[in-house]
Design a protein around this nucleic acid. Sequence first.
DNA 1: TAAATTGCCTAACAGTCGTTAGGATAAAAC
DNA 2: GTTTTATCCTAACGACTGTTAGGCAATTTA
Lengths: 193, 193
Amino acid sequence: MEKSRKEQIIQSAAKLFKEKGFEAASMRDIARTLGIEAASLYSHIKSKDEILELICFRTADELIKAIDEVNDLYFNAEEKLSMAIKNHVKIITENLDSSSVFLREWRHLTKPKLKEFISLRDRYENGFKQILVNGENENVFDAPDKKFAVLTILSALNWLTEWYNPNGKMTPDEIAEHLTEFILTGLRVKSVV
Amino acid sequence: MEKSRKEQIIQSAAKLFKEKGFEAASMRDIARTLGIEAASLYSHIKSKDEILELICFRTADELIKAIDEVNDLYFNAEEKLSMAIKNHVKIITENLDSSSVFLREWRHLTKPKLKEFISLRDRYENGFKQILVNGENENVFDAPDKKFAVLTILSALNWLTEWYNPNGKMTPDEIAEHLTEFILTGLRVKSVV
DNA sequence: TAAATTGCCTAACAGTCGTTAGGATAAAAC
DNA sequence: GTTTTATCCTAACGACTGTTAGGCAATTTA
């Protein structure tokens, strides 16, 4: 069975929102990619805003589910961080369009939903923060300013949407490995033990 | 002497483009913040597109000038990287609105200017890449995939526009220091030498 | 003092926007 | 066989978009 019309609409919209931005992509643009008229979209969705909400909140839910799982399943902080990064990279690379919209276009969410979204995002960041606290207790991480560290880590992960190419040489897992290595040990030459 | 009207327009536009996005911010919005009519803007600027171009290319020029200077003035790779990061943070934090537009809204540049912009951005990235090559030759950096490393570093720097608060506790220089430290040595506990 | 320039105005343009109303057609469910 | 449901259509709405034309008043220059 192929995807429901609604799902097709959301997918097309995500691609266009990514390419042109939420405001610049019109309902008529979305309709055109599906070979129908703009008015016909409204048999499947309530509004343009609703499409954006669906895209943003789905991705948010997926990320939160992943970080909660990691914090539940693993004990070791290094392992936790490594898994969290792997999951993040996986979710982003497997849903490039939605992820870009999630990261770039959430600003266009309207009032009540916007607040809800931001609190979800904060919750995700706290999941990462928790890992850093764990790592400090285990004496393997050194990050005095946790919030700063989390934002720096996530920024490195999120920029993926700007340059990741599904046809490139690196697989998502390789990217995750590189990033983990980079985040853990930085640029400096590793001393031979 | 206060800023020219043109400069005021660009500044107001940058703020609005940052807050609402390029497409969502209208000429009437910009005019309103200056207490004039939208049509009056055209005594000072050619088009909405021109405003975006001015914002994007100014920031690009400033960044490129800074990286070229660093590569000219310093020899030591670690010092170079540290200075490059410091300059980047300085430029971004001192021009938060323009920088956000530069990073987020450049997609809306139109055809010929868009290409020009991308090549400037590439040139900036190459400036950083050069530093990593230096560091490898000096045997102080270990980054097999230079492009990957540069993108990861820049992503950490660029996310600043998303969370930096001029009224926050950290000064730009402190932020730059933290970032340099993070990029150089990562999260891991530093062994006592 | 006359001429030119600057900075703004009102009015309007052609086009696009998201969305609704109301109806047609075909397939699925009862 | 009738009703429901899904999917699409045309036509139109009011609002808003970037931009131009043409003119008025004040300031600066010659």
